[in-house]
Amino acid sequence: MSATLVRTSDEALLRALHDEHAHALWSYAVSLTRGDHARAQDVVQETLLRAWKTPAVLDQSHGSARGWLFTVAKRIAIDEWRSARNRHEFAAEQVPERPTDDVADTVAEHVVDRHVVVAALRTLSPEHRDVVLECYFRGASVAQAAETLGVPPGTIKSRAHYALKALRLALEEMGLSMAQIAGTT
């Protein structure tokens, strides 16, 4: 009886973790694994499993929880990459494809900025995301976006405004300050 209860609540927690964070983590994991979707799934699953086993993380504010998840995902990806590389070298004794040592760190450091931006964009609400997609990525005017999305032009403007506010907040939650954001331009 009690075992069943634990099971159900565990599953509910895991589902909640997945719904809340998998979308943002996914793009980040894909970048960390250089587009290897199987390994990216592994990284996201392992990250969420660790969160599930570390209740203290979930007691924190939303922002610090997300920061924790991204740090953990990166560590898992680097560890996996290193052990895969070691296995590979050991088994085949081939010359590594790339110069070794700190490649994993460099890879991870290199991709972090751009992919943190992608991950932050993926946390936007559908309303905010759609306006950014229309007006920025697809180059629509306010009037065109208003027609496509079926809302008044004034709403498009204010959604665009709040979408970037939300983006800024998401970036800050992931540890980027506005000074750093401005510095990258």
Binding site: H23, V30, Q41, V118, L133, Y136, L164, A182, T184
Partner: peptide, 29 residues
């Protein structure tokens, strides 16, 4: 501020933003 934030978007592709999480992720988890 909007210019700083918008500058970050220049390297990003639309596909990356909308790419769906694989269906197999949750069952595997």
């Amino acid at each position: 501020e909007a210019r700083s934030l918008t500058a970050l978007l220049s390297d990003v592709s639309e596909a990356e933003i909308v790419a769906a999480v694989p269906d197999t992720l949750l069952p595997g988890l």
